Amino acid sequence: MELSLLSLFMLGVVALTQTRAGSHSMRYFHTAMSRPELGDSQFITVGYVDDQQFVRFDSSSESQRMEPRAAWMDKMDEEEPNYWEEQTQIYRKNAQIYRRNLETLRGYYNQSQGGLHTIQRMIGCEVSAEGSLRKGFYQFAYDGHDYIALHTETLSWTAADTGAENTKRKWEPEKSIAESYKAYLEKECTHWLKKYLVMGKDVLLRTDPPSARVTRHRGPDGEVSLRCRAHGFYPAEISLMWLRDGEEQLQDTEFIETRPGGDGTFQKWAAVAMAPGQEDRYSCRVQHEALAQPLSLRWEPEASSLWVIVGVTAGVLVLVTAVVAGAVILRRRNSGGKGGAYVPAADKDSAQGSDVSLTATGEAPGALELEGG
């Protein structure tokens, strides 16, 4: 598989920033964890539209209900009166299915009773600025390793190891399983993503320009580095590039991944090392969709107010652009043990007991038992 689900779940929101500007995504992350000390398991689901978490379910919570995680989801009672009750019932059932799937996968990998194990699933879609489907995602992991994924073009399953082959042998002959998920990704997922974008447009379609500055740092051995830091921007996709004498400088450059700022915006920095006295040869270029043009920043020893000046300037540039163009810039962006996951079962008995249709409220076709064929 191209991207490890472990990375997706560890990075959370950050993993959702890898899409092109103008596109939008909706993804659900499901995690089931065994709790041997309690003789039980915990099941958690979080849903994201772009970088914003909008729903959450936790089987260990007092209410065991699907709950809103974005203010704009409070409108859902008016849009879909039965939404929250339907989602709650769906995920309570899924929690039971995942509990059984943990036992199934423990058997696949000859793991002894007890021990901490996890099943993870990521499902979702990404649409272009025009609203057409760009790609769909349907992947599973077990104990932090890839397990199995759906290839929507060929309606085939990619198994990561011999354990996952058990599931592949069960699902692949039953073409209706892959077909139902493909149909969900192409129709239901995109439909609900567009609906959520309309409901949360004030948050999801906004653009906040970055404030940025360059600082100088000296290491214990006298080495010098310049750090270019941007913060307060939305959406999360941004480019920071160091240039030396106008040429892109990748060597001796250190980047950190874009990170949530804690207030609904994001932050990022890039640092470059150099010999002392060379600082004036370097500039940092900052590109973001909320900027009318890239920012070019240099280290200025006495410019203590640069942070504020750059932020104000960026805001003015965006305002001027909006007035001249008469349009709002739309935003976007995308995402131990062996592999394992929960998925649709093909046998008649298990399908009868656990095929929960979720398409009415934007989730995928039902969670089925993970049994080998």
Rank of each mutant, 00 (worst) to 15 (best):
Y138H: 13
G114H: 03
L105D: 13
D143W: 13
E153N: 05
G131K: 00
A149H: 12
E86M: 15
K75P: 00
D143Y: 13
F140A: 14
D143L: 12
E126D: 07
N110F: 13
N110K: 15
E79Q: 08
Y83P: 06
C125T: 06
T118D: 06
V127H: 03
T104F: 14
W84V: 06
K93S: 02
Y98W: 12
A149R: 13
G131F: 01
E85V: 09
Q120Y: 01
D77Y: 07
T152C: 07
R92H: 04
G114E: 05
I148N: 02
T152F: 11
M122C: 12
I148M: 07
A129Q: 06
R92G: 02
E78Y: 04
S112E: 15
L105M: 14
L116Y: 15
R92V: 03
Q113F: 11
I123W: 10
E78P: 04
D77W: 04
S128Q: 05
L102W: 05
R100P: 06
V127Y: 05
G131C: 03
A159K: 01
H151D: 15
T88P: 04
G131I: 01
Y83E: 02
Y91L: 00
D143P: 12
Q87H: 13
D77R: 07
R106Y: 08
M76Q: 03
I123D: 07
T154W: 00
Y147P: 08
I90C: 10
H151P: 10
E130T: 07
Q111P: 09
G107L: 13
N82Q: 09
E79H: 04
A129W: 01
G124E: 01
E79F: 05
R100Y: 14
T154E: 08
A159H: 04
E80V: 07
R121D: 00
L105S: 13
E78F: 02
E86V: 15
T88W: 00
V127S: 01
A129C: 09
R106F: 07
F140C: 14
Y147M: 13
K93D: 00
A95K: 02
K135W: 07
H151V: 12
G114C: 01
N94I: 05
R92N: 03
N101M: 11
H117P: 03
H145M: 08
K75H: 00
Q87C: 15
Q111G: 12
T154Q: 02
I97Y: 02
R121L: 08
Y147F: 15
A160E: 03
G107P: 11
S112F: 11
Y138T: 06
H151R: 14
T158C: 09
R92L: 01
M122R: 09
G124P: 06
I123V: 10
Y91P: 04
E126K: 01
D74K: 04
V127D: 05
L155T: 00
I90R: 09
S112Y: 11
Q139N: 13
L102T: 03
D74Y: 04
T158F: 10
Y91F: 02
Y147R: 12
G115F: 02
G136Y: 10
L150N: 10
L116H: 15
R106S: 10
Y108K: 11
R99T: 14
K135N: 08
T104W: 13
Q113I: 11
R99D: 12
R99M: 11
E79S: 06
F137V: 15
Y98S: 07
